[in-house]
């Protein structure tokens, strides 16, 4: 039982990360019907920007403690948002009116570009987050179960950001505009919404969340890799579909669910098959409920 709860908490922690990345996929898909294959690499970029700011530039030492990390998180968000904006501007916007597959290939190209750019700058070896204090050392005993500080950070960060996004999308005028563009671009344009601006905004919010997820992974797992974006990205995308692609609460639910299923599967079925379990879940979902858990029915073209 104790091990079960431990695994559950691990699952929730990694699930929160998946959910944060999944939000970027699902928002972009919601407004553009495009699978942003480069999103996973923006996540990686967040982890590496965090590494540079926190350790190489020493912001972690200048402003010790949580405050320094929060400042770095803000900077990472801003930097990755700029990258997301540039990506949309350069690789996707010119293709918005052509065949959708052209945008998919452009996205794949951008992904290869980012991955290798990171590799060239930081090297192909895994990088270590060399903090003076490691989150892994601390833990909080609750009813006989040690909840590690890193789990708390991961769960806390993801819940906070998800709540923020949910509030932003549902309670602000800009959020309403995003929903309108996702619903019907032409109609939104007629209502006086600057569609280009909204799409650019979506390409900044999604990567910003993904970037923080990258930083969190770096902080909590301590090790980052230039091509980790693929695995995390694919899992997060699976999560987005699991919850119903284009649906923001769906991405949150899907991410957390996938994290838990994966973590329990790893513990109770087989560690070697960990990744296969997630993809198997994905196929099952698509077979029996292609619109995902919270997705709405999509009408076929007639």
């Amino acid at each position: 039982m104790e091990e079960f709860i431990q695994q559950l908490i691990n699952g929730l922690a990694v699930g929160g990360i998946y959910a944060l990345i999944a939000l970027g996929y699902t928002m972009v898909y919601g407004v553009l019907k495009l699978i942003n294959f480069a999103h996973g690499d923006l996540f990686t970029l967040g982890a590496y920007f965090g590494l540079t700011l926190l350790i190489t530039m020493g912001i972690g030492d200048m402003v010790p403690g949580p405050l320094g990390i929060i400042i770095v998180a803000g900077m990472v968000m801003a930097l990755v948002a700029i990258m997301g904006y540039l990506l949309e501007r350069v690789a996707y916007r010119p293709l918005r009116n052509s065949d959708r597959l052209a945008a998919v290939v452009s996205a794949l190209g951008a992904s290869i570009f980012f991955q290798n750019a990171i590799m060239l700058v930081y090297g192909s070896d895994a990088q270590v987050y060399n903090l003076n204090v490691s989150a892994a050392e601390y833990s909080l005993p609750v009813a006989g179960i040690n909840i590690s500080a890193s789990s708390i950070i991961m769960i806390g960060t993801s819940l906070l950001l998800m709540w923020g996004l949910y509030w932003f999308i549902n309670r602000t005028r800009t959020g309403m505009a995003i929903r309108a563009v996702a619903n019907d671009q032409a109609a939104a344009k007629l209502m006086g919404i600057d569609v280009n601006k909204i799409i650019a905004l979506v390409f900044m919010i999604g990567p910003a969340l993904g970037g923080v997820a990258g930083l969190t992974v770096g902080l909590c797992y301590g090790k980052i890799d230039y091509n980790m974006g693929w695995t995390y990205g694919l899992k997060a995308f699976t999560a987005a579909i699991l919850g119903g692609i284009g649906n923001i609460p769906g991405a949150m639910l899907g991410g957390i669910l996938l994290g838990v299923v994966e973590s329990l599967g790893e513990a109770y079925i087989s560690g070697a098959w960990k990744n296969a379990i997630s993809f198997f879940v994905l196929i099952l979902i698509l077979l029996f409920r292609p619109t995902g858990l919270l997705g709405e029915r999509v009408a076929d073209k007639l």
Binding site: V90, A91, P94, L95, S98, D99, A102, A103, V105, S106, L108, G109, A110, S111, I112, F113, F114, Q115, N116, A117, L120
Partner: peptide, 18 residues
């Protein structure tokens, strides 16, 4: 090589989406 390759993929699509 792959850096150029990725950029070339994007460029080719931008220039000739068809």
């Amino acid at each position: 090589r792959l850096l150029v390759f990725g950029a070339a993929m994007v460029m080719m699509m931008l220039l000739r989406p068809q």
